[in-house]
């Protein structure tokens, strides 16, 4: 049993297998409120799988997931989201046919109190709630600097902006914990450094706890306070960026991969 003192998220000996292959094996991890932590490891190490376990896309065969002390193992993803965990995806999954504003508003739907009937009949109660939701969404877009794109179709935006919209959409759910899956993928160094500022900024403005997966070491080492390294579904190291950079197991894992990549 992991110690959950003040931990916002705790994974306790979590395992998942795909057709006999252990994708994640007895993974234990805690995240303190307000932390900005990173999850790194070679390709196929099981990082995204861990995200999918936290958000309920996969149910672990063993182990438990706790959020704010509550056991959320096996909850459906929408319930996890409503509990306060929001995420982005490695391969951007926006609602491409919807506008940026509508994308953000989708995340507000679970907060809606008005009934279907009130919405279908456009009753004043619903109209009021919709107005408030729109104002909040616009305010959010303003804060993340996307206000002028509110009415643009999400699928039509350039890649970098789609990433930001995805983060904005996650933020709109009023999460306490934000999971970012490779937010800098496909970005050039300049875009990446702007994204770093953006992530730090978002954390301070919204008072969030953030866990991110990233391959860009500059980003990870630059903003994460604590880093966990995994390989083949197993934790191999944890520590501050300085500790990780000098850890021999990490270097082997990464050099091993680099060696493969460049051979």
């Amino acid at each position: 049993m992991v110690s959950q003192n003040g931990a916002i998220l705790a994974l306790d000996n979590v395992s998942v297998n795909f057709g006999g292959l252990m994708a994640v094996n007895e993974f234990t991890f805690t995240l303190q409120k307000g932390e900005l932590a990173g999850l790194i490891g070679p390709n196929g190490a099981g990082k995204t799988t861990i995200f999918n376990i936290i958000t309920g896309q996969y149910e672990p065969v063993r182990g438990k997931v706790f959020f704010k002390g509550q056991d959320i193992t096996g909850w459906r993803p929408d319930r996890v989201a409503c509990a306060g965990i929001a995420r982005t995806f490695q391969n951007i999954r926006l609602f491409e046919d919807l506008t940026v504003l509508d994308n953000v508003l989708v995340s507000r739907h679970s907060k809606l109190k008005a009934s279907v009937l009130a919405a279908a009949l456009n009753l004043p109660g619903y109209i009021n709630e919709e107005r408030v939701a729109r104002e909040k969404a616009m305010e959010l877009l303003d804060r993340v600097g996307l206000a002028d794109l509110a009415n643009a179709e999400a699928g039509s935006l350039p890649y970098g902006q789609q990433r930001r919209v995805e983060i904005a959409r996650a933020l709109a759910a009023d999460p306490e914990l934000l999971l970012l899956d490779e937010p800098a993928a496909g970005m050039n160094p300049e875009e990446t450094s702007r994204l770093m500022e953006f992530i730090c900024d978002v954390r301070d403005k919204f008072g969030l706890t953030i866990l991110l997966i990233e391959h860009d070491m500059k980003l990870v080492m630059g903003i994460c306070e604590r880093i966990r390294v995994i390989d083949y579904g197993v934790s191999i190291a944890e520590g501050t960026p300085q500790e990780i950079q000098s850890d021999s197991r990490v270097i082997t894992a990464y050099l091993g991969e680099e060696a493969c990549e460049y051979s």
Binding site: Q57, D78, R93, F95, D97, L98, S107, A120
Partner: peptide, 25 residues
């Protein structure tokens, strides 16, 4: 055009993402 309709459209565009945004698909 309501919030319910947006939820329907989000399910149409990407079920997995919709669920992750708290939509009871």
């Amino acid at each position: 055009n309501s919030s319910y309709g947006r939820a329907m459209k989000s399910v149409r565009d990407d079920e997995v993402a919709a669920e992750a945004m708290g939509i009871p698909v």
